[in-house]
Design a protein around this nucleic acid. Structure first.
Lengths: 171, 171
DNA sequence: TTGGAAAGTCAACAAGGCTGACATAAACTT
DNA sequence: AAGTTTATGTCAGCCTTGTTGACTTTCCAA
């Protein structure tokens, strides 16, 4: 059986498992790396104009997605420390993009909402990002998109997958 | 025609373009975000044990991939400033993971190679990352993987796509 | 009612981006 | 030969965004 270019013979099972060779996996890893750069490029440019970073985008996105969410919930979704999130949140609140309301049931909690200005910036950011994704989806076609989504789901940590699925419910 | 949940009616063309709705695009964006976290999680853990970061991983990966590459070429691939790359490269060279050799044809250039120790760490990192990708690919199946790759290619900036394709040649 | 847990805030530090200025050596141009 | 460009490296300093530790306020349960 022919070598596959890495000095290892192909795995047993023949052609059907060629997509699992180390070469193919490495190509996938590199594709993920380069694609993620494109994925964030457009929002990054817009954020820079506002002196914000990706962390601000993420906060805006998920507050938009789950209005009234608590800081703690956001923490779990974003997977950063509360101190790190707090700094970003503080500037967004100071700048009037996010409003924070003390919880009614539990007054320790802060519920987060986008203000009109916050919704506006979120829209600009997400439209820029969607524009690229739309073009990519259109070029690749619906079946490729289905595969894309399927693989991404499998790459996620189970914990993150849970958050992803929970977001779905709120749609 | 039914609303799609965002207060916009579905695009003309009917069911066939449902994968291009803002909802679907937003889900794709979120999937990309959560998946990228999983994608980097395993290497990140290993890197932390060595007091390295993702920047070191990227350098190791691409030097491994293109042995003898120049600093300038690496700069273009990674898309960072030379100061930033230099800091990372310097520690890798000091730690004996990367070797830098003056060019023969053009003595201004430095050609970069992994040392044995460098190859070892790169292997540990890439095997951890491939392990997750292999599991994901296996779960998703070859057709999904093809779609995954196709969409990623389309998301890339043309400039990055060029680098990606050039790497292919070296395989 | 008191002590622990939870939510959030403040302070300080580190990694890794960035810009700008500058140095050196080698290659190229005129 | 002189001047310019290119490749690389370095220093200084800034910003964003991660981190840990210490602290306050609030809630709840023993």
């Amino acid at each position: 059986m022919a070598e596959n270019g890495l000095g290892r013979s192909s795995p047993p099972g023949g052609e059907s498992l060629l997509f699992l060779t180390d070469d193919q996996l490495r190509r996938g890893i590199e594709a993920m790396f380069f694609a993620y750069r494109g994925f964030t490029a457009d929002p990054d440019r817009i954020l820079a104009e506002h002196s914000y970073g990706r962390a601000h985008h993420r906060a805006l996105h998920f507050v938009h997605r789950s209005p009234g969410t608590t800081v703690n919930n956001l923490l779990n979704i974003l997977g950063v420390t509360k101190q790190s999130l707090n700094r970003v949140l503080r500037t967004l609140i100071e700048d009037g993009l996010v409003s924070s309301k003390v919880g009614v049931k539990d007054r320790r909690e802060r519920h987060l909402y986008l203000t009109e200005a916050g919704k506006e910036l979120e829209k600009v950011l997400s439209e820029a990002q969607r524009k690229r994704m739309r073009a990519a989806y259109r070029e690749a076609g619906p079946e490729a998109v289905a595969g894309f989504r399927k693989v991404l789901l499998e790459i996620m940590d189970p914990e993150m997958r849970k958050h992803f699925d929970q977001l779905k419910d709120g749609m």
